[in-house]
Amino acid sequence: MIGWFGVGSLVFLLTCAIIVARTRDLLAATIVFAAYSLVMAMTWQQLRAPDVAITEAALGAGVTTLLFLLAIARTRRTEDESA
């Protein structure tokens, strides 16, 4: 049912999810999250849900990334590095 493209996408999604959770650089995490959303949109399309795919590409990869970027740009980090 799921071909090599689907398996590759799912492995990429899992890798992205782990990187987003593990990385300490907020900007890098945001970019990886955008890549996750883009591949997720392709996966929705592969599952024959084009409506969800369009919304995921525009909202997940586009607007959510911009919201995170703005929030990072307008706040300062006071993170405890030893934690």
Binding site: P50, A53, I54, A58, G62, V63, L69
Partner: peptide, 21 residues
């Protein structure tokens, strides 16, 4: 065709967000 108010509105808003950025 696939899409609708929510998806299209997000694309339209995203284009304006690009201008803002």
């Amino acid at each position: 065709s696939p899409g609708g108010g929510f998806a299209g509105g997000t694309i339209l808003g995203g284009s304006m967000a690009l201008y803002l950025f």
